[in-house]
């Protein structure tokens, strides 16, 4: 998913860099509201969590395996602002420490994965959360669909950028069909892993899941006198 140097022409790369800088600037202010002075250590550890889970290989069969991208997962777990910052930092680290994703394509990568991936996931998530019953467990299907939608949407956004600033005369429909097709399959895997991971966290520490907070706030304390046999 990491766009290398030279995939998009210079004006498009500059354009996406401006979009990325504006988005990250907003996220810095938003995250301060979400986390206050806890921003740096918590977003740092969340970034590291995303980075580490990307190292976890999920076998698909026939010797191949895939890994989590984590945009929607991060948005559901820590809120969209912090998630944007975490993914941004992961991408900066991958570009500078691993040569994964070009330095001139950093703006493009942040726009695609940190902004489109996270925010599409988050918007789908809150839309579903509104229609599902207000229970912490509802977070799981909402996160699942959010993860599924966010991956092909980011791929579609890449196709649009490639149509604007790509260096090949490939019809937009061909690139979009191929990218969205392949990434829908990846999205299925992403959705499954996200749902499984979120359900395991909601079961143990629902208070840590940002997306479950409205449902938790409604929950009242129940005091049971008798222990059921």
């Amino acid at each position: 998913m990491h766009v290398p140097d030279g995939f998009l022409d210079a004006p498009t790369s500059v354009g996406t860099a401006v979009v990325a800088a504006a988005g990250v600037g907003l996220a810095l202010r938003g995250a301060r509201r979400e986390l206050d002075d806890r921003t740096a250590p918590l977003a740092g550890l969340v970034a590291l969590f995303i980075f580490a889970t990307q190292l976890l290989n999920f076998p698909i069969g026939a010797g191949t395996s895939g890994h989590l991208l984590g945009g929607a997962l991060a948005a559901v777990l820590v809120g969209p602002w912090t998630a944007t910052l975490a993914i941004t930092v992961v991408l900066i680290v991958q570009a500078t420490l691993m040569a994964d994703g070009g330095l001139t394509a950093l703006g493009t990568n942040i726009t695609l994965m940190g902004l489109v991936g996270v925010w599409v996931g988050w918007l789908v998530f809150i839309a579903l959360r509104r229609v599902l019953p207000r229970r912490p467990a509802s977070v799981v299907p909402a996160a699942c669909v959010a993860a599924f939608v966010s991956v092909p949407t980011a791929a579609f956004a890449f196709s649009v950028l490639f149509a604007i600033g790509g260096v090949a005369d490939v019809p937009f429909s061909t690139v979009a069909t191929a990218m969205v097709g392949v990434h829908s399959l990846i999205g299925l895997g992403e959705a499954a892993i996200t749902a499984l991971a979120v359900s395991s966290i909601v079961a143990v520490r629902p208070d840590l899941v940002y997306g479950a907070r409205p449902a938790l706030r409604q929950r009242t304390l129940t005091i049971r006198d008798e222990v059921p046999a």
Partner: peptide, 22 residues
Amino acid sequence: ARSIRSWPVLATTAGALFIRSY
């Protein structure tokens, strides 16, 4: 970790990793 059936275990690992990291 051989097939898709191992995903729940691996995803739980990711979940545990999140709780520990947070």
